[in-house]
């Protein structure tokens, strides 16, 4: 039923982005207020400014109504359609940089730039791109690519089927995928946990003294590009994969790394704990940067 409704709505609708704005409202917001958006289909683009107000520009079919509801905890934005399905709405929103943001949807593309607060973005089909964010930054998509850049705090990112990319992030990081690759560059974190089933995991950045890092995949590769001055203890496990390193690791014997056997090797003072696991892929330790895996 939902699909049928969607099909009708999308058949009748022109792409929302080609239309003139049907909604253009600005509402005042108090500090501490949150913004929650639920958009069934379309695009949500949020930029920030230094005003304590929220501007909502929306493009949609005349039959679709956009509801902007200020409340005690913040502002909620949603839409409804006269034919049942809410249809497609493209939002361009300008929000205070301090405002926590929550965006949910089904066929929804999300872009958030410049936020300096908590962000939660979750969609089924569509990419999620976040530049900024602090506190808890969560970005999830089932079918789309997820990118987070410059986030600070606890970063929780996942895509089921597409790539996950985290750049220049500071703080604890959790990244997950099933089929997509996970790429992390310019990371400054003492806690990173990245896991996949078929995806390759690439990490470029520092391994902080006392930090904990877990990289695990079933079928993909694990590639780390780290400074030569790194102090880390590596626990390496692979069942039928391979291990290669550009570093001279104390206690490392390549012959030991097979059949899931635990191999412990030390670099420098060994003060960071790093676990590298892949069932069938390769594990690579590189100095500096990691060349992108071929064919991926």
């Amino acid at each position: 039923m939902l699909l049928a409704g969607l099909a009708i709505a999308l058949t009748l609708a022109q792409p929302a982005s080609r239309q003139a704005p049907q909604t253009d409202e600005t509402v005042a917001v108090q500090r501490g207020a949150r913004l929650s958006i639920n958009n069934f289909a379309g695009e949500v683009l949020i930029r920030t400014w230094d005003k304590d107000s929220l501007r909502v520009v929306a493009r949609h079919q005349p039959r679709t109504r956009v509801h902007i509801r200020p409340g005690s905890s913040g502002v909620t934005i949603s839409s409804s359609g006269s034919m049942g399905a809410p249809g497609s709405v493209d939002y361009e929103i300008t929000a205070p940089a301090w405002m926590p943001l929550r965006v949910e949807g089904t066929y929804n593309f999300v872009t958030i730039e410049g936020a300096q607060a908590e962000i939660y973005a979750n969609t089924m089909r569509g990419d999620v791109i976040i530049k900024g964010g602090s506190g808890v930054v969560t970005a999830k998509s089932v079918e789309g690519e997820v990118q987070v850049q410059g986030a600070r705090g606890k970063v929780n990112v996942s895509s089921v089927n597409e790539k996950v990319r985290i750049t220049d992030a500071t703080g604890d990081i959790i990244a997950e995928s099933v089929n997509g690759d996970i790429t992390m560059t310019g990371i400054d974190s003492k806690s990173v946990d990245a896991s996949s089933v078929n995806g390759t995991i690439v990490y470029e950045g520092k391994l902080a003294d006392g930090g904990h890092y877990n990289f695990g995949t079933h079928n993909g590769d694990v590639a780390l590009g780290i400074p030569e001055s790194t102090n880390a203890t590596f626990v390496i496990r692979t069942y039928q994969g391979t291990v290669s390193t550009e570093f001279t690791l104390e206690g490392y014997n390549p012959q030991d790394a097979r059949r899931g056997r635990r191999v412990t090797a030390t670099l420098g003072k060994g003060s960071a704990d790093v676990t590298l696991e892949t069932f069938g892929g390769s594990i690579r330790l590189r100095k500096g940067s990691v060349a992108r895996p071929r064919g991926r």
Binding site: M124, R125, V142, E143, V160, N161, V178, N179, V197, N198, N219
Partner: peptide
């Protein structure tokens, strides 16, 4: 498409 993707990932 969604069903196909979900099934592919579950199969993986």
């Amino acid at each position: 498409t969604t069903i196909r993707i979900l099934e592919a990932n579950l199969s993986a």
